[in-house]
Design a protein around this nucleic acid. Structure first.
Lengths: 179, 179
DNA sequence: CACCAACCTGACCGCTCGGTCAGAACCTGA
DNA sequence: TCAGGTTCTGACCGAGCGGTCAGGTTGGTG
């Protein structure tokens, strides 16, 4: 029986506390107390406090990378709808992780593992804008991108209800891609 | 020789540093060093660190109260456009303050001076949704509200360019008010 | 059994934080 | 000139932070 349970428990508790009190608002002591282990144990499993956050957020980051790669292979005509659907699916699947990333931005944006997040979201903005060069289209794309993320973070509606509502508002707000 | 009011200078510097490093990421020592005074001087002018933030944000909060009051006097047919225009004007006028509020939420949301902010934004959501009871309309309203605020916070475009773009995307995305 | 690596801990460290306090320096009007 | 309120400060405080370390505990394996 592998004793990896403690590590998972740390991640579970950390996600909960980071979500509730923010990253800076949660101390290693808080996490350790909730897990029921010592602070030193946390730092046995994770090199730094930051490493806990990175581990929590990594799956979402990987999904974002995948999404952007997928969008790169789609023509201008279809990219808007693919971006909308893909992004909404992603943030609904990783609601908690999205909240964590938003909480910790921009301080973590220059973390080596995170430098790419900015360019990833830039690619997403381009997708939302149907690769339009018009600044107003890009502004609209940013509004929707940030707005959807924000709603997903703190709205209590179920994702089954939320998804069509989010897709609908994005489709209404964003200019369709040209061919 | 004009005596620069230390209190004003503290607020100026604090706004700058809070914006750049966040509220928690800025210490009283940092502010004092930048102002060129002692930490004790800060606490002579402001009872607590929180009081500095509250003072910075107060004008924006008052404007929000005024806006919500104004919307209450408008009928369902016109409330959507009034809310859109009023909110966009407000966040463009108080870009920095909006950024501060978003940085510090939700920790400050239960501050006595801030308890009302949540209900104020709820009123705005209702306005954006043209007072519709449809949850999807309210979701759309939340997306636009949060999205506009987020864009205003970190977009570098001039407000003269930004305003029409923001109004346009909001009009497109939100259902017109019925009569 | 003994051994060893993985796992865990209490005690401790250096540092920064927000905040306090007694008193110095600085006006300003009498 | 002096008095007295306003403004400012260095020294200090207790608490909390992330992180280290030497050593104890545990459980599987030969």
């Amino acid at each position: 029986m592998v004793r990896i349970r403690t590590r998972d428990e740390i991640l579970r508790v950390a996600a909960e506390l980071f979500t509730r009190y923010g990253f800076k608002g949660t101390s290693l002591h808080d996490i350790a107390a909730e897990v029921g282990c010592s602070k030193a144990t946390l730092l046995y499993h994770f090199a730094h406090k930051d490493a806990i956050l990175l581990a929590l957020v990594e799956p979402a980051r990987q999904s974002l990378i995948d999404l952007v790669a997928r969008l790169a292979g789609i023509d201008d005509k279809g990219v808007r709808d693919a971006a909308i659907g893909g992004f909404i699916d992603l943030v609904l699947r990783y609601r908690r992780e999205v909240a964590l990333i938003y909480d910790v931005t921009p301080q973590f944006l220059q973390e080596p593992a995170f430098v790419r997040v900015r360019e990833l979201t830039d690619a997403l903005v381009a997708g939302f804008a149907g690769r339009s060069a018009d600044p107003d289209d890009q502004t609209a794309a940013k509004v929707l991108l940030a707005g959807i993320a924000a709603v997903v973070i703190d709205d209590k509606r179920d994702e089954v209800e939320l998804r069509p509502a989010l897709v609908a508002v994005a489709r209404r707000a964003l200019i369709p891609g040209k061919d």
